[in-house]
Design a binder for these strands. Structure first.
Lengths: 133, 133
DNA sequence: TGCATGATTGCACTATAGTGCAAGTGTTGT
DNA sequence: ACAACACTTGCACTATAGTGCAATCATGCA
Protein backbone atom coordinates (compact mmCIF):
# COMPACT_ATOMS: atom_id res chain seq x y z
CA UNK A 1 0.00 0.00 0.00
CA UNK A 2 1.35 3.34 -1.00
CA UNK A 3 0.61 6.60 0.72
CA UNK A 4 0.05 9.45 -1.69
CA UNK A 5 1.70 12.68 -0.72
CA UNK A 6 -0.77 15.52 -0.64
CA UNK A 7 1.53 18.42 0.09
CA UNK A 8 4.47 18.80 -2.30
CA UNK A 9 6.68 20.32 0.37
CA UNK A 10 6.39 17.09 2.38
CA UNK A 11 8.64 15.44 -0.19
CA UNK A 12 11.37 17.96 0.41
CA UNK A 13 10.79 17.82 4.12
CA UNK A 14 11.46 14.11 3.93
CA UNK A 15 14.83 14.74 2.32
CA UNK A 16 15.75 17.61 4.61
CA UNK A 17 17.61 15.41 7.06
CA UNK A 18 21.09 14.01 6.69
CA UNK A 19 20.18 10.50 7.80
CA UNK A 20 17.19 10.26 5.48
CA UNK A 21 19.20 11.64 2.60
CA UNK A 22 21.83 8.97 3.24
CA UNK A 23 19.13 6.30 3.12
CA UNK A 24 17.59 7.58 -0.09
CA UNK A 25 20.91 8.19 -1.75
CA UNK A 26 22.12 4.71 -0.93
CA UNK A 27 18.99 3.25 -2.44
CA UNK A 28 19.15 5.48 -5.48
CA UNK A 29 22.70 4.42 -6.22
CA UNK A 30 22.23 0.72 -5.60
CA UNK A 31 18.60 0.29 -6.61
CA UNK A 32 18.47 -2.62 -4.19
CA UNK A 33 15.86 -3.27 -1.60
CA UNK A 34 17.22 -3.71 1.89
CA UNK A 35 16.11 -4.49 5.40
CA UNK A 36 16.66 -2.41 8.50
CA UNK A 37 19.61 -4.36 9.84
CA UNK A 38 21.47 -3.97 6.57
CA UNK A 39 20.94 -0.23 6.79
CA UNK A 40 22.10 -0.22 10.40
CA UNK A 41 25.35 -1.82 9.35
CA UNK A 42 25.74 0.39 6.29
CA UNK A 43 25.02 3.72 7.94
CA UNK A 44 26.33 2.78 11.38
CA UNK A 45 23.32 4.31 13.10
CA UNK A 46 21.13 2.73 15.81
CA UNK A 47 18.16 0.72 14.59
CA UNK A 48 15.51 2.76 16.40
CA UNK A 49 16.79 5.89 14.73
CA UNK A 50 16.72 4.42 11.24
CA UNK A 51 13.37 2.78 11.88
CA UNK A 52 11.83 6.13 12.59
CA UNK A 53 13.40 7.79 9.57
CA UNK A 54 12.21 4.94 7.37
CA UNK A 55 8.71 5.53 8.66
CA UNK A 56 8.91 9.20 7.74
CA UNK A 57 10.13 8.34 4.24
CA UNK A 58 7.31 5.83 3.91
CA UNK A 59 4.72 8.36 4.97
CA UNK A 60 6.11 10.85 2.47
CA UNK A 61 5.63 8.28 -0.26
CA UNK A 62 9.29 7.78 -1.08
CA UNK A 63 9.63 4.24 0.24
CA UNK A 64 7.45 1.18 0.29
CA UNK A 65 7.99 -1.52 2.87
CA UNK A 66 7.26 -5.20 2.79
CA UNK A 67 7.55 -7.64 5.64
CA UNK A 68 9.18 -11.02 5.07
CA UNK A 69 9.30 -13.04 8.24
CA UNK A 70 11.40 -11.17 10.73
CA UNK A 71 12.78 -8.81 8.14
CA UNK A 72 11.20 -5.77 6.58
CA UNK A 73 12.45 -4.84 3.14
CA UNK A 74 12.33 -1.27 1.94
CA UNK A 75 12.47 -0.08 -1.61
CA UNK A 76 12.18 3.18 -3.49
CA UNK A 77 8.86 4.29 -4.90
CA UNK A 78 9.51 5.60 -8.39
CA UNK A 79 6.11 6.81 -9.41
CA UNK A 80 4.86 9.43 -10.12
CA UNK A 81 7.52 10.44 -12.62
CA UNK A 82 8.68 13.47 -10.66
CA UNK A 83 9.97 11.12 -7.98
CA UNK A 84 12.32 9.47 -10.44
CA UNK A 85 13.41 12.92 -11.49
CA UNK A 86 13.99 13.83 -7.87
CA UNK A 87 16.15 10.76 -7.33
CA UNK A 88 18.29 11.73 -10.31
CA UNK A 89 18.87 15.06 -8.64
CA UNK A 90 19.76 13.35 -5.37
CA UNK A 91 22.29 11.23 -7.22
CA UNK A 92 23.86 14.34 -8.74
CA UNK A 93 24.49 15.99 -5.38
CA UNK A 94 28.11 16.44 -4.33
CA UNK A 95 29.63 14.15 -1.73
CA UNK A 96 32.26 16.49 -0.37
CA UNK A 97 32.69 14.65 2.89
CA UNK A 98 32.67 11.17 1.36
CA UNK A 99 29.74 10.09 3.49
CA UNK A 100 27.77 8.47 0.69
CA UNK A 101 30.80 6.69 -0.68
CA UNK A 102 31.52 5.18 2.73
CA UNK A 103 27.87 4.16 3.17
CA UNK A 104 27.91 2.54 -0.24
CA UNK A 105 31.04 0.57 0.48
CA UNK A 106 29.69 -0.83 3.72
CA UNK A 107 26.40 -1.64 2.04
CA UNK A 108 28.10 -3.57 -0.74
CA UNK A 109 30.14 -5.52 1.78
CA UNK A 110 27.03 -6.19 3.80
CA UNK A 111 25.23 -7.60 0.77
CA UNK A 112 27.83 -10.36 0.63
CA UNK A 113 26.31 -11.82 3.78
CA UNK A 114 23.02 -12.52 2.05
CA UNK A 115 22.00 -16.02 1.05
CA UNK A 116 19.67 -16.54 -1.89
CA UNK A 117 19.38 -12.77 -2.10
CA UNK A 118 17.85 -12.48 1.36
CA UNK A 119 19.27 -11.17 4.59
CA UNK A 120 19.99 -13.91 7.13
CA UNK A 121 22.17 -12.46 9.83
CA UNK A 122 20.85 -9.42 11.67
CA UNK A 123 22.86 -6.50 12.94
CA UNK A 124 26.62 -6.79 12.65
CA UNK A 125 27.53 -3.19 13.34
CA UNK A 126 30.93 -3.87 14.86
CA UNK A 127 32.11 -5.87 11.88
CA UNK A 128 31.47 -2.95 9.54
CA UNK A 129 32.73 -0.20 11.75
CA UNK A 130 35.33 2.02 10.15
CA UNK A 131 37.57 4.74 11.49
CA UNK A 132 35.27 7.30 9.82
CA UNK A 133 32.37 6.24 12.02
CA UNK B 1 27.94 37.10 -4.24
CA UNK B 2 26.75 33.55 -4.06
CA UNK B 3 26.77 31.38 -0.99
CA UNK B 4 27.82 27.84 -1.67
CA UNK B 5 25.78 25.21 0.08
CA UNK B 6 27.93 22.81 1.99
CA UNK B 7 25.34 20.35 3.24
CA UNK B 8 23.17 18.81 0.52
CA UNK B 9 20.20 18.44 2.85
CA UNK B 10 20.14 22.23 3.28
CA UNK B 11 18.82 22.49 -0.27
CA UNK B 12 15.87 20.29 0.55
CA UNK B 13 15.39 22.04 3.86
CA UNK B 14 15.04 25.27 1.92
CA UNK B 15 12.22 23.80 -0.14
CA UNK B 16 10.52 22.12 2.80
CA UNK B 17 8.19 25.01 3.44
CA UNK B 18 5.04 25.89 1.57
CA UNK B 19 5.81 29.59 1.27
CA UNK B 20 9.34 29.02 0.02
CA UNK B 21 8.15 26.41 -2.45
CA UNK B 22 5.61 28.90 -3.76
CA UNK B 23 8.38 31.45 -4.25
CA UNK B 24 10.68 29.03 -6.04
CA UNK B 25 7.93 27.54 -8.13
CA UNK B 26 6.75 30.95 -9.25
CA UNK B 27 10.26 31.85 -10.30
CA UNK B 28 10.85 28.52 -12.02
CA UNK B 29 7.72 28.92 -14.09
CA UNK B 30 8.21 32.55 -15.00
CA UNK B 31 11.98 32.76 -15.04
CA UNK B 32 11.62 36.42 -14.18
CA UNK B 33 13.40 38.29 -11.48
CA UNK B 34 11.13 40.07 -9.07
CA UNK B 35 11.24 42.37 -6.09
CA UNK B 36 9.71 41.77 -2.69
CA UNK B 37 6.62 43.89 -3.20
CA UNK B 38 5.74 41.99 -6.36
CA UNK B 39 5.98 38.76 -4.41
CA UNK B 40 3.86 40.21 -1.62
CA UNK B 41 1.11 40.98 -4.12
CA UNK B 42 1.49 37.64 -5.91
CA UNK B 43 1.53 35.40 -2.86
CA UNK B 44 -0.64 37.62 -0.67
CA UNK B 45 1.66 37.19 2.30
CA UNK B 46 3.08 39.93 4.56
CA UNK B 47 6.37 41.43 3.49
CA UNK B 48 8.26 40.56 6.66
CA UNK B 49 7.35 36.94 6.21
CA UNK B 50 8.50 36.77 2.61
CA UNK B 51 11.61 38.77 3.38
CA UNK B 52 12.69 36.17 5.87
CA UNK B 53 11.95 33.27 3.54
CA UNK B 54 13.88 34.98 0.77
CA UNK B 55 16.83 35.25 3.11
CA UNK B 56 16.68 31.53 3.82
CA UNK B 57 16.55 30.73 0.11
CA UNK B 58 19.49 33.05 -0.47
CA UNK B 59 21.53 31.39 2.27
CA UNK B 60 20.76 27.99 0.79
CA UNK B 61 22.17 29.16 -2.51
CA UNK B 62 18.91 29.02 -4.47
CA UNK B 63 18.42 32.75 -4.95
CA UNK B 64 20.67 35.70 -5.60
CA UNK B 65 19.57 39.20 -4.68
CA UNK B 66 20.49 42.55 -6.12
CA UNK B 67 19.55 45.95 -4.80
CA UNK B 68 18.33 48.62 -7.19
CA UNK B 69 17.42 51.79 -5.38
CA UNK B 70 14.59 50.98 -3.02
CA UNK B 71 13.89 47.69 -4.66
CA UNK B 72 15.68 44.38 -4.23
CA UNK B 73 15.41 41.98 -7.13
CA UNK B 74 15.67 38.26 -6.60
CA UNK B 75 16.46 35.65 -9.20
CA UNK B 76 17.09 31.93 -9.31
CA UNK B 77 20.60 30.56 -9.11
CA UNK B 78 20.89 27.83 -11.74
CA UNK B 79 24.38 26.53 -11.16
CA UNK B 80 25.60 23.95 -10.29
CA UNK B 81 23.71 21.79 -12.76
CA UNK B 82 21.85 19.81 -10.12
CA UNK B 83 19.99 22.99 -9.17
CA UNK B 84 18.55 23.29 -12.66
CA UNK B 85 17.59 19.64 -12.39
CA UNK B 86 15.94 20.32 -9.06
CA UNK B 87 13.92 23.19 -10.50
CA UNK B 88 12.66 20.91 -13.26
CA UNK B 89 11.41 18.57 -10.56
CA UNK B 90 9.74 21.44 -8.74
CA UNK B 91 7.98 22.41 -11.94
CA UNK B 92 6.71 18.85 -12.36
CA UNK B 93 5.06 18.74 -8.94
CA UNK B 94 1.27 18.52 -8.86
CA UNK B 95 -0.78 21.58 -8.01
CA UNK B 96 -3.83 19.87 -6.59
CA UNK B 97 -5.04 22.89 -4.68
CA UNK B 98 -4.38 25.37 -7.49
CA UNK B 99 -2.11 27.45 -5.28
CA UNK B 100 0.66 27.85 -7.83
CA UNK B 101 -1.74 28.64 -10.61
CA UNK B 102 -3.31 31.42 -8.53
CA UNK B 103 0.11 32.78 -7.57
CA UNK B 104 1.14 32.78 -11.20
CA UNK B 105 -1.97 34.63 -12.31
CA UNK B 106 -1.50 37.38 -9.74
CA UNK B 107 2.17 37.62 -10.62
CA UNK B 108 1.45 38.06 -14.32
CA UNK B 109 -1.12 40.73 -13.55
CA UNK B 110 1.33 42.43 -11.25
CA UNK B 111 4.00 42.52 -13.94
CA UNK B 112 1.69 44.75 -15.99
CA UNK B 113 2.36 47.53 -13.48
CA UNK B 114 6.05 47.65 -14.36
CA UNK B 115 7.50 50.46 -16.45
CA UNK B 116 10.59 49.83 -18.54
CA UNK B 117 10.71 46.38 -17.00
CA UNK B 118 11.18 47.70 -13.49
CA UNK B 119 8.83 47.80 -10.55
CA UNK B 120 7.56 51.31 -9.75
CA UNK B 121 4.64 50.97 -7.41
CA UNK B 122 5.21 49.14 -4.14
CA UNK B 123 2.76 46.90 -2.37
CA UNK B 124 -0.75 46.78 -3.80
CA UNK B 125 -2.03 43.76 -1.89
CA UNK B 126 -5.67 44.78 -1.83
CA UNK B 127 -5.83 45.23 -5.58
CA UNK B 128 -4.72 41.65 -6.16
CA UNK B 129 -6.72 40.00 -3.43
CA UNK B 130 -8.89 37.12 -4.58
CA UNK B 131 -11.59 35.13 -2.88
CA UNK B 132 -9.09 32.27 -2.52
CA UNK B 133 -6.90 34.39 -0.33
C1' DT C 1 5.70 -22.92 24.95
C1' DG C 2 9.48 -20.13 25.81
C1' DC C 3 13.37 -17.67 24.01
C1' DA C 4 16.10 -14.97 20.74
C1' DT C 5 15.89 -11.43 17.63
C1' DG C 6 14.42 -7.99 13.87
C1' DA C 7 11.77 -4.07 14.16
C1' DT C 8 8.79 -0.50 16.24
C1' DT C 9 7.18 2.89 19.56
C1' DG C 10 6.07 5.60 24.12
C1' DC C 11 8.24 8.97 26.77
C1' DA C 12 11.06 12.83 28.03
C1' DC C 13 14.16 16.11 26.54
C1' DT C 14 16.43 19.52 23.56
C1' DA C 15 17.00 22.18 19.56
C1' DT C 16 15.25 24.43 15.78
C1' DA C 17 11.84 26.63 12.70
C1' DG C 18 7.93 29.62 11.53
C1' DT C 19 5.16 33.60 12.84
C1' DG C 20 3.42 38.34 14.17
C1' DC C 21 4.39 42.67 16.04
C1' DA C 22 6.96 46.53 16.15
C1' DA C 23 11.10 48.93 15.52
C1' DG C 24 14.81 49.91 12.51
C1' DT C 25 17.68 50.73 7.97
C1' DG C 26 18.43 52.83 3.71
C1' DT C 27 16.92 55.21 -0.36
C1' DT C 28 13.88 58.42 -3.12
C1' DG C 29 11.63 62.54 -3.78
C1' DT C 30 9.69 67.00 -2.10
C1' DA D 1 15.69 68.39 6.34
C1' DC D 2 11.72 65.74 6.23
C1' DA D 3 8.44 62.37 4.86
C1' DA D 4 7.27 58.28 2.39
C1' DC D 5 8.25 53.83 1.38
C1' DA D 6 10.76 49.21 0.17
C1' DC D 7 12.77 46.18 2.92
C1' DT D 8 14.91 43.99 7.11
C1' DT D 9 15.31 42.35 11.77
C1' DG D 10 15.04 41.92 17.17
C1' DC D 11 12.00 39.86 20.29
C1' DA D 12 8.72 36.72 22.23
C1' DC D 13 5.96 32.91 21.47
C1' DT D 14 4.42 28.43 19.71
C1' DA D 15 4.83 24.29 17.22
C1' DT D 16 7.42 20.78 15.41
C1' DA D 17 11.42 17.69 14.67
C1' DG D 18 15.27 14.74 16.04
C1' DT D 19 17.31 11.86 19.64
C1' DG D 20 18.26 8.23 23.30
C1' DC D 21 16.53 5.03 26.50
C1' DA D 22 13.72 1.47 27.50
C1' DA D 23 9.72 -1.15 26.75
C1' DT D 24 7.09 -3.59 23.42
C1' DC D 25 5.50 -6.10 19.27
C1' DA D 26 6.04 -9.89 16.05
C1' DT D 27 8.15 -13.71 14.02
C1' DG D 28 11.00 -18.00 13.76
C1' DC D 29 13.11 -21.67 16.10
C1' DA D 30 14.42 -25.00 19.73
Amino acid sequence: MQIITIQPEAIFQALADETRLRIIRLKVVTGDESCLCELVDSLQEPSYKLSRHLKILRQAGLLSSQKEGRWVYHRLVTTPAYLAQLYATVQALPDSKGIYRADLKRFRDRLCLREDGRCQVGIQSEAFKTEAG
